[in-house]
C-alpha cells in the first residue's frame, strides 16, 4: 500500500502534465478539424484539403531528399569517426552536437546572410571574378537549410550504433576472410540498421513539418505544409489549419510506425 501510494505520488503530476499539454491540445485539434466554426459538425475541412494536395507532395519530396542527403553524408562520416582515437571521437561528437544547442531560427537566419544576393558567398564569387548567383528562393537553399539543421540527428544515432558494435565481431569477420568492404557490408551495415532507421525518422519528421526554413531560405517561393498551416492559424482559419495538422500528424505517425516495423529498436537505436 505504501509503495502504491508513493508510486501514485510520483506518477500523478506526470499524468496531469501529459493530460494538459498533450492530450487536451490533441482534442482541440480534433475538435477544430470537424468544426464549421460555429460549433457544428462538418467534413468540409477535410474535403478542402484536396486543394493542397500539391503542397503535401512537395513537402514529402523535400523531406525525403533532405533525409537522403543527411543519410549519405552521415553514414560514411559516422563510420570513419569510429575508426579514429577515442578522444578525437568525443571532440568531434561535441562539435556535431554544438549547433543542436543553438536556436533553429538563428541558424537558419545566418544562412540568409551567407546565401543572400549580396551575401558572403556571392561577394566571394564576385571577388574571384564570377557573376552573382541567386541562391535564395531556390529548392537547393531550402534543402541545404534542412540538411544543415537536422544532420546531427542522423549522425548521432548512426555513430552510436556503429561504435557499439563489438570489435571482436569485426575481428571474427576478418578471420573468416572478409576484407574491409565485405566487413562493412556483412557486419557493420546490418548491425547499424537500427541507428539508420532512427536517424531517418529523426530527420524526416522535422523536415516534413518545418516552415521557417522554407520561409526564410525559400524567400516565400516554396510552400510546404508547415507554411500553409502557419498561414491558416494567422488568418485565422483554425478549422482548416487543424485539419492539415491532423493529416500531417497521421502521416508522421505512419512513417514512425513503418520505421519501427523495419528495425528492432531495442538493438541499439534511439527512438522518438
Amino acid at each position: 500500500m505504501n509503495t502504491s501510494f508513493s508510486r501514485r505520488l510520483i506518477n500523478t503530476p506526470c499524468l496531469i502534465w501529459s493530460a494538459i499539454f498533450i492530450v487536451v491540445p490533441l482534442f482541440i485539434v480534433l475538435y477544430y478539424t470537424f468544426s464549421d466554426g460555429n460549433g457544428g459538425f462538418t467534413l468540409q475541412n477535410i474535403y478542402e484539403l484536396r486543394l493542397y494536395k500539391d503542397v503535401f507532395v512537395t513537402s514529402v519530396i523535400y523531406a525525403l531528399i533532405a533525409t537522403l542527403i543527411c543519410l549519405i553524408l552521415s553514414y560514411p562520416f559516422s563510420y570513419f569517426l569510429t575508426k579514429i582515437s577515442v578522444n578525437s571521437q568525443k571532440m568531434t561528437i561535441l562539435l556535431v552536437m554544438l549547433p543542436m544547442w543553438m536556436n533553429l531560427l538563428i541558424k537558419t537566419y545566418s544562412w540568409t546572410v551567407i546565401l543572400d544576393n549580396n551575401g558572403v558567398l556571392n561577394r566571394i564569387l564576385n571577388l574571384l571574378g564570377f557573376e552573382s548567383v541567386k541562391f535564395m528562393g531556390t529548392p537547393a537553399a531550402v534543402i541545404l537549410g534542412m540538411v544543415y539543421d537536422f544532420i546531427p540527428y542522423m549522425i548521432l544515432p548512426i555513430y552510436t550504433t556503429i561504435s557499439k558494435i563489438d570489435n571482436s565481431l569485426l575481428e571474427a569477420a576478418s578471420d573468416l576472410g572478409s576484407n574491409a568492404f565485405s566487413k562493412l557490408r556483412r557486419v557493420v551495415l546490418p548491425l547499424s540498421i537500427p541507428g539508420v532507421l532512427s536517424g531517418i525518422t529523426m530527420v524526416f519528421v522535422p523536415s516534413i513539418s518545418t516552415f521557417y526554413i522554407s520561409q526564410k531560405l525559400g524567400n516565400g517561393m516554396i510552400l510546404l505544409v508547415g507554411d500553409i498551416i502557419e498561414t491558416q492559424f494567422k488568418i485565422p482559419n483554425y478549422p482548416l489549419g487543424a485539419a492539415m495538422s491532423l493529416v500531417l500528424m497521421i502521416f508522421i505517425i505512419i512513417s514512425i510506425a513503418v520505421m519501427n516495423k523495419f528495425g528492432d529498436t531495442d538493438k541499439g537505436g534511439i527512438m522518438i
Binding site: 571482436s168 571474427a172 569477420a173 576478418s174 578471420d175 576472410g177 576484407n179 557486419v187
Partner: peptide, 20 residues
C-alpha cells in the same frame, strides 16, 4: 599478410557470433 588472407581461423573467447 592481413588477417583475412591467412589460412587460420579463430574461436574467440566469447565466441563473437554474429547476432544478426
Amino acid at each position: 599478410v592481413p588477417a583475412y588472407k591467412r589460412q587460420v581461423n579463430t574461436i574467440f573467447q566469447r565466441y563473437a557470433l554474429f547476432p544478426h
